[in-house]
Amino acid sequence: MAAFFQFWSPSADAQIKAGDKVPEFKLQDQNGNTFDIATVVGKQPLVIYFYPKDETSVCTKEACSFRDSYEDFKKYGAMVIGISSDNVASHKSFATHHNLPFTLLSDPDQKVRKLFGVPKTFVIPGRVTYIVDKKGVVVHTFNSMKDGEKHVTESLEALKKMN
C-alpha cells in the first residue's frame, strides 16, 4: 500500500516543465468568480505564478513587480495570474491594497499547486512561475523563493523569445 501511495503522490518529478501542456483547472478569483483556464488557453500567452502568501514581504514585492510591468505583459498579449492558498477575501484585500490589475486565484486546498507539482520549501509553499504559449504549452518555468522580482524579468524574457 505504501508503494502505491508513493507512486501516485506528487513529487519533484511530477512538476510541470517546459514542453508540457498546462493542466486544466477552475478556481475562484479575487472577486469570487469562477476562473476556468480552458476559457483562456488558445487565446493568449499566460504567465501563471504560484506564491506562498498575500501581504508577506517577498510576495508583495513580486506582486508589485508584476503590477509595475503589467503594460509590458499587455504588449505581449499575456494574461498574468497569481495563485496562492489564501482565500478570496484575502486576495481581494491584497489586490485592492496594492492596485494589482491582474487575476489572483484562491487555491485553499492546494489542489492546483499539487497539479502543477510546485515544490515546498520545508513548510512554505513554493514560488514558481510558468509561461504558457497560445497553444497551452509551457515554454518556460522559473523557481526561486528568494527573488520574487526575478520572476517578472524571467517571464518577460520568455515572452520576448516567443514573439
Rank of each mutant, 00 (worst) to 15 (best):
A3D: 13
F5P: 03
F5S: 08
Q6R: 08
F7Y: 05
F7R: 10
S9M: 11
S11N: 04
S11Y: 10
A12H: 06
D13S: 13
A18S: 15
K21A: 07
P23L: 06
Q28F: 10
D29V: 00
G32Q: 03
F35L: 07
F35Q: 08
V40L: 14
V40P: 12
V41E: 02
V41M: 15
Q44G: 06
P45G: 10
V47T: 05
I48N: 02
F50G: 04
K53P: 01
S57R: 03
S57V: 06
V58D: 03
K61Q: 12
S65T: 14
S65V: 08
S65L: 04
F66L: 06
D68C: 09
E71K: 14
F73V: 04
K74H: 12
K75E: 13
Y76E: 06
Y76L: 05
G77F: 08
A78W: 02
M79Y: 05
M79A: 09
V80R: 00
V80M: 02
I81Y: 02
I83Q: 03
S85Y: 13
N87Y: 06
N87A: 10
V88G: 02
V88Q: 11
V88E: 11
S90L: 02
S90W: 01
K92H: 12
F94Q: 01
F94N: 00
H97K: 09
H97G: 09
H98D: 06
H98M: 11
N99Y: 12
P101N: 15
F102D: 00
F102M: 00
S106E: 07
D107T: 10
P108A: 15
Q110M: 13
R113V: 08
K114P: 00
F116C: 09
F116I: 07
P119V: 11
P119A: 08
P119H: 09
K120R: 07
K120A: 08
F122C: 06
V123M: 13
P125N: 08
R127I: 01
T129F: 01
V132S: 02
K134R: 09
G136M: 08
V137W: 02
V138D: 02
V139F: 14
N143E: 04
S144C: 05
K146D: 15
D147H: 15
G148E: 13
K150N: 15
H151Q: 13
T153P: 15
S155R: 08
L159A: 10
K160V: 11
K160C: 09
